[in-house]
Design a protein around this nucleic acid. Structure first.
Lengths: 245, 245
DNA sequence: CTAACTAATGCGCATAACGGATATATGTCA
DNA sequence: TGACATATATCCGTTATGCGCATTAGTTAG
């Protein structure tokens, strides 16, 4: 039997299968802390709780394409780098049915974050409280960003707290040796802004001269020649991210 | 409407969905090079080509459980640490139908590798030829390990070459700062054996005193007091891996 | 019994990375 | 013009790393 013949007689629906979805962790910064875009579920299941934007994977779209579609439809964003994070497959993670979800991580500079908030009124910004240091790992809490950010952490739907915790862990791990830090900055930025990003992600202050040296020695920073404006003190040089050839 | 009521009326089969599978990269070492367990496909599609052991994910099993089941049924192994690697979702990766596959990576010490080969006659060992250095990434080739290992790389089925390449990349990346290297060694081992493992994975020779110092300073090695046997020269101290408290 | 051999182990030095404090430069604003 | 705040540069002590070399402890040959 030829391979073509075999395929024509193959029944793709012979077995039951889990549903497949993507969930997006859209991270930004807020007041020197990591924050995330969430939407409050209006419908069952988990009505009223807060969830990551997500959606089912269609038969004729890749995982990456599904992530991009959710990014566009639920956050109104395009052209944002989306990276696969992990695939979650616990049996009871969704009460409706068996759903396996591929989590994606995207980093939004302040402009994109605000754009999403403005364009999609259902989205809210939540601040992530990371109670552990370094790459210890563990649970994280999310707090409302608007208003006073007091007490009451938000209740997350499904296993989204777990997804969020892994996103933070992954981000911290990649910060040193990859270029993820720049994804949270505008095109032109100062070294202090870059350091602020690193400190927000790592949750710990960094030594300034050492940080400057490391970043400049890495060769990824191209000075633009211009300086920041609007300061009441000496303005800092503006740099541009330029991947080494 | 209560959540319970909502759930009772929910139709899980409302939409078509991709099939979900797991594929296992079972890595070991052979003659100082990374090697992998493969099986030659007897049936369509891709009959005759070489594939990673895999299987579909059942409705009532988690992804990790599916990986363990495949490890048991197709490699005859149990109690091996399996770690999720990446999820592959290209549209045409399987000609039968749309299949999304969650790849897992497991490291087999020589004993487990041989055990799998003996217990499952269909499995073969293939040596992985990594033509790039460091973490540059890129395609890899697989060569038959038995016999002379001459020319003719094996033809891999589906996108399994891509999966394999990512496994190598991930392994190289984690080698420095994690304990993955020990997973390829027996319970008791010498520093030279540990260095051999690192050199095989990285594909580059390492400086001996510097390697010794780094490993010992890390505090993960507990000397056993005994020494290796059967050498015609000074036998080395045997160590045991002991995760720091 | 002794010497040759081999690889493990230990030592020392030059160099590079790094944390951290301090000094200098360069803008704004009163 | 000078006070001020922050960016930028310099310096130093500590620690990690690369690397050659001496020493040690086994086996094997004579």
């Amino acid at each position: 039997m030829s391979e073509a013949k075999f395929l024509s007689g193959y029944d793709p629906d012979a077995y039951d299968r889990p549903a497949l979805a993507v969930d997006l962790v859209l991270l930004g910064l807020h007041d020197g802390r990591p924050s995330v875009l969430l939407l409050q579920r209006a419908e069952h299941p988990h009505a009223g709780r807060w969830a990551l934007p997500g959606g089912f994977v269609a038969l004729d779209e890749t995982l990456d394409a599904a992530a991009e579609r959710v990014l566009r439809d639920k956050a109104g964003l395009a052209g944002i780098q989306c990276e696969q994070l992990y695939t979650f497959g616990a049996l009871d993670r969704d009460p409706r049915m068996r759903i396996v979800s591929v989590a994606y991580l995207a980093l939004l500079p302040e402009r994109a974050f605000g754009e999403a908030l403005d364009g999609m009124p259902k989205l809210s910004r939540a601040v992530i409280d990371v109670p552990w240091t370094g790459e210890a790992g563990g649970p994280v809490a999310v707090l409302p960003a608007d208003g006073r950010m007091r007490g009451e952490p938000l209740a997350l739907a499904f296993d989204h707290a777990e997804i969020l915790a892994l996103a933070i862990l992954r981000l911290r791990g990649k910060l040193d040796y990859s270029d993820v830090g720049f994804a949270l900055l505008p095109e032109h930025f100062t070294l202090r802004q870059l350091q602020d990003v690193h400190e927000a992600i790592l949750g710990t202050p960094l030594n300034k001269p050492a940080f400057r040296r490391r970043m400049l020695d890495r060769g990824w920073l191209a000075p633009t020649g211009s300086r920041e404006a609007g300061t009441s003190f000496r303005p800092a040089e503006l740099y541009r991210f330029q991947k080494p050839s």
